[in-house]
Amino acid sequence: FADRIETRHTAEFDPASGAVRPLRERRLGAVRLSSGPDSHAAPETIAAALVEGVRRHGLDLLPWSEGARAFRVRADYAGVALDDEALLARLDEWLPAAVEGRRRLDAIPPGALTEAIRNLLSWDDLQRIERVAPAHFTSPAGSTHAIDYGAEGGPRVELRVQALFGLAEHPVVGEGRVPLVLSLTSPAGRPIQTTRDLPGFWAGSWAAVAKEMRGRYPKHPWPDDPASANATLRTKNADARRAQSR
């Protein structure tokens, strides 16, 4: 049967390791006569095996970065489909480019998956995500803070309360002008208040909070009227030196 024996180059995917093992097989029809590692496997064969492995075993095998996960959550919040069902339905459109030249899923470079799924979207979809679900909130102090759109209770941002001095209106996001959930912290990063009503906080419990903060962090400013104060992340002395140098 020598004329019926053929050599096949295949690749087996291992979901436990997320890796592909290229094989060289000798077969007589459906019967495998021998097999062993294949050092000359075609790159497209390996890439196809990685893609098929993800198709069969799910997107959780991929090394999603925090940025990629956050982008998908933002897209979902904006009504742009990047959920598992949508990505699996279009797997052959975005994953091959990310696995090209790799033999393992964990070898995909950071940011490659974000770029791959972004390339699926139209310009209008990308603009909608930026408009409805911006990635960051910029405080009056000029600091930027990531917005967590998957947080319980709605979009949430954590920042030092002093960064919001001078802000008399509660910050909002999206076309529906949804109030951000503000997780306010002390200069040491300890939580002091969570609010969806910043003006109400300034006018209400701020006095008690400021009194406690003056005792704990005397080097930092704690104004009686934070809505009209200058936002700052510096100490009082640092602000004074900065003012003198101008």
Rank of each mutant, 00 (worst) to 15 (best):
F1R: 14
F1H: 15
D3S: 14
D3T: 15
I5H: 07
I5Q: 12
E6D: 15
E12H: 09
F13D: 03
F13H: 02
A19M: 04
V20D: 01
R21N: 02
R21E: 12
L23E: 08
E25L: 10
R26N: 08
R27T: 15
R27L: 14
L28G: 09
G36S: 02
P37N: 04
A41L: 08
T45K: 10
A47W: 01
A49I: 14
V51D: 00
V51R: 01
E52Q: 12
G53E: 04
G53F: 02
R56V: 13
D60H: 08
P63L: 00
S65R: 06
E66C: 06
E66D: 14
G67R: 09
F71V: 05
V73N: 01
R74D: 03
R74E: 01
R74N: 00
D76S: 11
D76Y: 05
V80G: 00
A81T: 09
L82S: 02
D84E: 08
E85F: 02
A86Q: 02
L87T: 09
R90T: 14
D92R: 09
P96G: 06
P96T: 11
A97Q: 12
A97V: 15
A98C: 07
R104Q: 08
D106A: 04
A107T: 06
G111N: 06
T114Q: 10
E115A: 13
A116R: 03
N119Y: 07
N119T: 13
L121V: 07
S122K: 10
Q127E: 13
R128E: 05
R128F: 03
I129K: 00
V132A: 05
A133Y: 07
F137T: 10
F137N: 08
F137P: 09
S139L: 03
S139C: 11
A141I: 12
S143K: 08
H145T: 11
D148K: 06
Y149P: 09
G150Y: 00
G150E: 03
G153L: 02
L159D: 07
L159T: 13
R160S: 09
R160Y: 04
Q162T: 11
L164F: 04
L167H: 09
E169N: 09
H170E: 10
P171N: 04
V172Q: 00
V173G: 02
E175K: 03
V178P: 06
P179E: 07
L180P: 13
V181I: 14
L182N: 05
L184K: 09
S186I: 07
P187H: 00
P187K: 04
A188C: 03
R190D: 13
P191G: 04
P191H: 07
P191D: 03
I192A: 02
T194G: 05
R196T: 15
L198F: 07
G200Y: 08
G200F: 11
F201P: 14
W202S: 13
W202Q: 12
W202F: 14
A210C: 10
E212R: 15
M213C: 11
R214C: 10
G215C: 12
Y217N: 07
P221D: 10
P226G: 12
P226N: 12
A227K: 11
A227F: 06
A227H: 11
A229G: 08
N230T: 15
T232M: 02
L233C: 08
R234K: 12
T235L: 01
K236V: 12
N237P: 07
D239C: 08
Q244C: 09
Q244T: 12
S245K: 14
R246C: 10
